[in-house]
Write a protein that binds this DNA or RNA. Structure first.
Lengths: 249, 249
DNA sequence: GGACAAAACTTGTGCGAACAAGCTAACGGC
DNA sequence: GCCGTTAGCTTGTTCGCACAAGTTTTGTCC
């Protein structure tokens, strides 16, 4: 059973999304909510803090909380899962594994995955499609300690992260994203059916366990025009200067 | 004076960044921190929750908190300010205003800025440079209620947001970002000194006051290779399908 | 020594109270 | 009617306590 404050948050969230509290309207006061749910004010505050972190409500000392958004945006805060994401948006995800092999970790990969340099990792190249249209080239590297669990998965498996969550009982969260634009190379142009040099949106992402242990480091390149990344700010999108490999410094 | 939990958080943050608690090490227990600062455990929990939201520490029920990062990344959570950002990274920001005029808000702009459709807004086109190299074309639109405050600023003003914060006493935070890749058009190619069709990283961003009132809606296009956007996940980067205008749905 | 069980420790959740700080609306004087 | 003051409401911060749930260490038995 979820925690009490999560229940209250879920109820409020549904009410907001369902239109009971339209955008711009005020939420009931914490005292009122506490009375309604027979909970302490602190518990209610935990609930609304959750909604605030999702960007649904805003607050100002002294004034009642205001509803800022009336629609959920897709999968906020959840770890990346292409298949689930596409499904939630009513589209059909497909794809194929172009290549999969073990090799030694590069210096950057070793740092990202917090493994020793030269340790063996699993490298995987995948093409993802949306409703049959190729939209994404994914180059993922898995940390050595999950390689056995990943290798037993059938190559056609659509969601490595999802499957690992079930078989290995691991909870994931995303750690970091580095986003920039690059020109399509020869291989990407062929796979995505675009001209060489046309713009691609690149996202390098690190998936970690809930405790912060890195699992997967991936370089994803999206065809321009196919997807838009959305983010809200407390949580912060921050430009940083690009180095040779665009690492954070 | 900042709140108690912010002081404790700041102290812990400095200790982590300063190497007192190296990456991978454990933080003292909440009880120990509470005793050291003569504060209640709840207050300490608020402090470490802040650090956790910044991605500096992780936690697991029953086990001590672990330090996840030892370096601050640039300006996390702060509202966008090109000049300040560049300065913090040791680079010289420059730029010029190409155009500035009042006009009626488009439908999208009206929605974004939460003003009535057709209301007058201030449109501004700017070229930004880093160490003399053009890196960014910025097309910003300001909500009518701040137009007077914006117009009195000299055109050479490097930081509109910063200036408004000082003159009007407004506190800002970012609301939303939409990030994708586009090909350079004729104007952008000329301004950024790249070939037409070469990849640009586009970020459309909404800046709001702390209470959630929209102030600025801007379409920023960065030359590929010049910047990388970084973000951490609780706070969420979420791909969404691209519509005609890439709006969230 | 090694495996198992218990104890000690640590974080997660929840309650209730109190005061501070800021906002709103009602009230009263002009 | 208009405006300033005031009283009441609402959120922000802090305290202290208690128990639940999970982890780590200790200790014991074989």
């Amino acid at each position: 059973m979820p925690a009490r404050y999560e229940q209250i948050a879920a109820e409020l969230r549904e009410a907001i999304l369902g239109g009971t509290y339209p955008v711009g309207s005020h939420l009931p006061s914490e005292a009122a909510l506490a009375a309604r749910h027979s909970a302490a004010r602190g518990t209610v505050r935990q609930a609304v803090a959750l909604l605030a972190s999702e960007g649904l409500v805003g607050s100002r000392q002294g004034a009642r909380r205001v509803v800022l958004r009336g629609e959920r945006d897709q999968l906020f805060g959840e770890p990346y899962d292409f298949a689930r994401w596409a499904g939630a948006l009513g589209h059909r995800a497909g794809g194929e594994v172009i290549g999969r092999r073990r090799r030694k970790a590069s210096a950057t990969e070793a740092v990202r995955l917090a493994v020793c340099a030269g340790e063996e990792v699993l490298s995987m190249l995948r093409l993802r499609t949306l409703d049959g249209v190729p939209v994404l080239v994914e180059r993922a590297v898995y940390a050595s300690w999950v390689v056995p669990a990943v290798e037993v998965l059938e190559p056609g498996c659509e969601s490595v992260v999802g499957a690992l969550g079930e078989t290995a009982g691991l909870a994931f969260r995303h750690g970091e994203h580095l986003i920039d634009a690059v020109a399509a190379g020869v291989q990407e142009a062929r796979l995505l059916a675009v001209r060489r040099g046309s713009p691609l949106l690149r996202r390098r992402r690190l998936t970690s366990t809930a405790e912060g242990r890195p699992v997967e480091w991936s370089d994803d390149r999206y065809r321009a025009g196919s997807v838009v990344f959305a983010t809200r700010s407390p949580g912060g999108v921050n430009p940083s200067l690009a180095g040779q490999d665009g690492d954070l410094r």
